[in-house]
């Protein structure tokens, strides 16, 4: 390769990189970006970091008037309880109906707990809460394959404090739409 050809090649490469960057910044990812995990590179001191940054999450789902049940994306629970309270039932029902009417739409129910008690028991408790919401959605006609359940237990609090109000905010199921396939 002579010098001229090399510079042409380098310029092309640079343009491609820039176009690539501009393109991705405008493209809305349909899924949370997840770093490719090399099973052999998960090790110490490599500097590799796994998983996707939670701030890159994007909200999908129905456009609903603020204040309507469909606009609410979280359902809150009492301590050590997994019963959907009467005040939150319309929220679960509205999303269940929406899913039923939009069978290609998928949702993840993220169960959460407050920080009290053991971490793995709280994972189980968060899942029980998410399943309680899921059952209501299924009654409304949503299909099982539309709803995925993940429990984060006490690992992803929305309020970092220790106290009744922080705990009440953290005992929740979040309804996270994955966008249409």
């Amino acid at each position: 390769m002579n010098q001229h050809a090399f510079f042409q090649w380098a310029l092309m490469a640079l343009i491609l990189v820039l176009v690539g960057c501009a393109g991705t910044s405008e493209t809305v990812p349909t899924q949370e970006p997840v770093d490719v995990v090399d099973p052999t590179a998960g090790g110490a001191e490599t500097g590799a970091i796994v998983g996707g940054s939670s701030l890159s999450r994007r909200q999908y789902g129905p456009d609903a008037p603020p204040g309507s049940p469909l606009a609410q994306r979280a359902i809150y629970f009492d301590y050590d309880a997994a019963t959907v309270k009467a005040e939150y039932r319309p929220v679960a029902e509205a999303h269940g109906t929406y899913l039923s009417e939009n069978p290609r739409i998928r949702v993840v129910l993220e169960g959460n707990a407050d920080e009290r008690g053991t971490r793995e028991y709280n994972i189980a408790l968060g899942e029980r809460r998410a399943h309680a919401v899921r059952r209501i959605m299924l009654y409304q006609g949503a299909q099982p394959e539309q709803i995925q359940v993940v429990s984060y237990g006490e690992e992803r609090p929305v309020s970092a404090g220790s106290g009744d109000s922080a705990w009440a905010q953290n005992r929740r199921v979040e309804i996270v739409y994955a966008g249409e396939e």
Partner: peptide, 18 residues
């Protein structure tokens, strides 16, 4: 680990192979 946006169990040795 929740790196895949859900819970998974891994086993890893001290050299980092998992």
């Amino acid at each position: 680990t929740f790196e895949a946006d859900r819970a998974e169990v891994y086993v890893q040795d001290l050299a980092g192979q998992r």
